[in-house]
Computed example of a mutant assay.
Amino acid sequence: MFKKTFATLAVATCAALAVLPAMAQSNWPDKPVKLVLPYPPGGNVDGAARIISEQLQAVFKQPFLVDNRPGAGGMIAGEFVAKAAPEGYTFFMGANGPILFSPTIFKRNAYDWKKDFAPVSSVSFTPLVLQVNAATPYKTIGELLAAAKKPGSALTMASPGAGTTNHLVSEYLQKESGGKWLTVHYKGNAPATTDLLGGQVQFNLDQLSVAQPFIQQNRTRALAVTSAKRVPSMPDVPTLQESGFKNFEAETFTGILAPAGTPPDVLQRLSEALQKILADKAVQAKFETLGAEARGSSPQQFTQFLTKEDARWMPVIKQANISAE
């Protein structure tokens, strides 16, 4: 009798313990959630994060806090999240470079997105624009590249960090055009833009969401965009494809990842909320004013997208021997 009762209690206890994690997950989130960013305030990723954090807080009735942790090509933020407890309260909101390429470019095995993260959803997609300081003499991309081919060219290009899409497109242009310039790496878009506006560097390749206000104010001059088609807000600015770089297209994405091992139902709930938020016309309008397209995805779709981007750009990094050293 005693053995039977003990066995029954043991089974019941195990069943109860098995239910506890599920109960905890169903109550998610019951405290503030942190979105860790690899860049300082200002710029493409920060702008996107602040739009969605407000919307997520309204949906889940908990604060979604933006935590800027710049440095090391985004790896300070990425490594922090990769090592965080996989409980659904710390997420990595990054872009192409910090998510996919920085560990290779900085030659530091801080994390591997395939092993250390669980993709949640994409957030936005933004073409880049090549812009020059308005005081420079360059009116077309052809003029800029011609200057870059001259012996002793002193052209300087501002990059928000090694391994970013901005940096990769810059390397691609040098390789394809034969031009040369000094790439100056900054800790994010904001300081890079500050030096561009101040004339410390002559040009940059920046996300349209960041560059557009300065172009409209005539503080910078747009020479080309990286999208497949011309941007509606700048119909007179040619694409790189029109400028002689056949089949070239590049864009910066932003997206959210969780530490590997985060409960699947938490990933699914957050992904579904983001897809609904990013499909809202009012939210899409906010992203459009930044020059970005809001677009959510399922965890599976975002994983497939990251896999394709990884396969597309890693050969470019290796062939160009791109390194932060």
Rank of each mutant, 00 (worst) to 15 (best):
H185D: 14
I215K: 03
L155S: 13
K175Y: 13
I99T: 13
K4V: 03
E293Q: 09
D67K: 08
A48G: 11
K61W: 01
V45C: 12
T194N: 09
D46A: 15
P264H: 07
A82I: 15
F60N: 05
S243E: 08
K61D: 07
S159C: 11
G73P: 01
S271C: 10
L9D: 01
L37F: 02
A292F: 03
L145P: 08
F60V: 07
F80K: 08
L173V: 05
T239F: 06
P238Q: 10
V169G: 04
T183K: 02
F80P: 00
P41H: 02
V81N: 08
F287L: 01
A148Y: 10
K281R: 10
A12W: 01
D310E: 06
T239Q: 03
K114V: 09
I105G: 06
P191S: 09
K107L: 10
T239K: 00
F60Q: 04
V316D: 09
V201T: 08
K276Q: 15
F92C: 11
D236W: 07
A146G: 10
V237S: 02
K150I: 15
P160R: 05
L35M: 11
A49W: 04
L290D: 00
G42N: 08
D206T: 13
Q131N: 09
Y89A: 13
A250V: 05
F6M: 06
I256S: 00
Y89K: 10
Q284I: 04
T136Y: 05
E293G: 06
K61L: 12
H167V: 13
P259T: 08
N247R: 02
I322P: 02
T5W: 02
A260P: 01
P191N: 10
T164V: 05
A72Q: 11
Q216I: 08
P70K: 00
P191I: 14
S323V: 07
G88T: 06
A118G: 06
A49L: 04
R221Y: 11
L182N: 14
G97H: 04
E54A: 15
Q301F: 13
L197V: 01
M93T: 06
F60S: 08
G188C: 05
E293T: 11
A282F: 08
A250H: 03
A147I: 14
G43M: 03
N321M: 04
A134V: 10
Q25F: 03
F253Q: 12
P263N: 05
N204A: 12
S26N: 00
A82S: 11
D195Q: 14
A58Y: 02
V237Q: 01
L168Y: 09
K229Y: 10
L267I: 14
K115A: 08
V66N: 02
G78P: 06
L223N: 05
A311T: 06
T262I: 07
P103K: 03
F92N: 12
V45I: 15
Q174S: 12
S124V: 00
L257R: 02
V66P: 01
Q284D: 05
S323K: 09
K187L: 07
G261S: 11
N321E: 06
A279E: 15
P127W: 09
S26L: 01
G152W: 14
P213L: 11
Q217G: 08
T140E: 04
P119H: 10
F106H: 07
E54W: 07
